[in-house]
């Protein structure tokens, strides 16, 4: 299943049809930063810088069927998914990482939708 097709899905429709995927939030970052606004901004800046690179790298490896490398990308991305409060999304990432290592892709669709959710969210904040 190619990544390009999935990326074109309408994310907002997906959210309305599946309540298990919440909107990303900064609750974890508030806790980690202990409400230190400077540190919180620094973390947000890092996410905004790192996430698109990691997503792009994942999409490239996934499209090229380099699934072991894609699994490593998912591993890194899942930390950010967790930090942005997407607990169900984190579970999806955990499953997808396992699947990629055995050339299975059942969670691929949901995972890419999550990436797109985060992408949109990071443009808003």
């Amino acid at each position: 299943m190619g990544a390009n097709f999935i990326i074109s899905l309408n994310v907002s429709i997906f959210i309305s049809n599946n309540n298990s995927y919440m909107k990303p939030n900064l609750n974890y970052l508030d806790e980690i930063s202990n409400n230190d606004p400077v540190f919180k901004e620094k973390l947000i800046a890092i996410i905004k810088r790192e996430f698109p690179k990691e997503k792009k790298e994942f999409s490239s490896n996934y499209d090229k069927k380099k699934y072991h490398l894609a699994a490593q990308n998912v591993h890194k991305l899942k930390h950010k998914i967790n930090i942005l409060g997407l607990r169900e999304g984190f579970k999806t990432a955990v499953n997808f990482e396992k699947e990629l290592n055995i050339n299975k892709f059942d969670s691929g669709h949901d995972f890419i939708v999550i990436l797109n959710l985060i992408d949109n969210y990071l443009k808003e904040i």
Partner: peptide, 13 residues
Amino acid sequence: DDEDMARAIIENY
């Protein structure tokens, strides 16, 4: 750690 995010958090702590 190969993640900037992770290093920043530990450094802050």
